[in-house]
């Protein structure tokens, strides 16, 4: 199908974009902000969204496309494309899980256009970058004409395809903590074919102390709830230990016990839960292995 008719606005400055979004919204028009279009364009083509106005951010490459190290964080502009993240030496050194995640995102043509800001704002709970943002508790900067606020991922993802972005706000930047010393990261997913939407996906980060005992462990899951789920709270039992694969498996099983994922045509609830356990165990074990090699 084809998109419905809309008015098209291409701001050349961020201020112009924020002003336009503010005014159109005030006028009661429905507005969509277009970044890479790899999620929004299908939604428009299928007429699941029929906005009055489309504001295209692609004229703002010069201000919204960047990867900048900043102490123990990396700042990434919302319009940074997947292929750029995939190829960035800075990202592979400081947030290697993103390099791994990018290889799982769609296909090469999707990665040519799709952006980090678009992926987070779309908030598909089985998508890779929302999972990584939740795992690392990255923060997002949301700007409107009158206000700029920076909030953690945990407060950004509200429900299936729903975020705390206000109608007058644009996501402009993502701030991601860098990999600490003696740490490893891993993302594991299951999809029907390479590049398809994940049925379930798990991400983990493990830090060990000088005795190779776990000092900190984080785990997040996608595809098994309305948002990416931070499961880290259940991992305290690993602290101070040198867990074997069976120990991790046992703990993960306990943590995942209360999951109640929705089933769909691709996988029923029990299968998704099973995948969540297997992928979590793999992700934690792989991250632990990597942390010991650092």
């Amino acid at each position: 199908m084809k998109p419905c008719a809309f008015q098209f606005y291409t701001p050349q400055t961020l201020e112009d974009a924020l002003e336009a979004l503010w005014e159109f919204t005030e006028e009661g028009l429905s507005v969509k902000v277009l970044a890479g279009g790899q999620s929004l364009m299908p939604v428009l083509n299928m007429r699941l969204a029929t906005p009055d106005v489309l504001i295209d951010l692609n004229g703002l490459e010069n201000v919204l496309n960047f990867i900048i190290p900043d102490n123990d964080h990396v700042r990434v502009g919302a319009l940074t494309r997947h292929y750029q993240l995939e190829a960035s030496p800075l990202i592979s050194r400081h947030v290697p899980i993103i390099t791994e995640a990018e290889r799982l995102i769609g296909h090469v043509a999707i990665r040519s256009r799709g952006t980090i800001g678009g992926s987070l704002a779309h908030a598909d709970p089985s998508a890779e970058l929302p999972l990584v943002a939740s795992l690392l508790n990255a923060s997002v900067t949301l700007r409107s004409k009158i206000e700029t606020r920076t909030i953690p991922a945990a407060e950004f993802f509200l429900a299936y395809l729903m975020t705390s972005l206000e109608p007058t706000e644009i996501l402009t930047e993502v701030t991601i903590p860098t990999l600490p010393g003696r740490s490893g990261q891993s993302i594991q997913e299951f999809a029907l074919r390479h590049g398809d939407f994940a049925i379930a996906v798990a991400g983990a980060q493990v830090t060990v102390d000088e005795n190779s005992c776990v000092a900190n462990a984080r785990l997040a899951l996608g595809g098994v709830g309305p948002t990416p789920l931070d499961m880290s709270a259940g991992l305290e039992l690993l602290i101070g230990t040198q867990p074997q694969l069976e120990d991790i498996g046992r703990l993960v099983k306990a943590i995942c016990q209360d999951l109640e994922p929705d089933g769909d045509i691709h996988a029923d609830s029990a299968y998704r839960k099973d995948l969540a356990e297997t992928l979590s165990t793999r992700a934690l074990a792989t991250a632990l292995q990597k942390s010991r090699n650092k």
Binding site: F8, T10, G37, Q38, M41, P42, N45, D56, N58, Y83, V108, A109, I110, S112, R113
Partner: peptide, 19 residues
């Protein structure tokens, strides 16, 4: 519908002509 845009493959159904 894959075409090359600035040398990279792109879905021409997921990009507007005006872009």
């Amino acid at each position: 519908c894959t075409v090359l845009v600035d040398g990279r493959p792109v879905r021409s159904c997921l990009m507007l002509g005006v872009q």
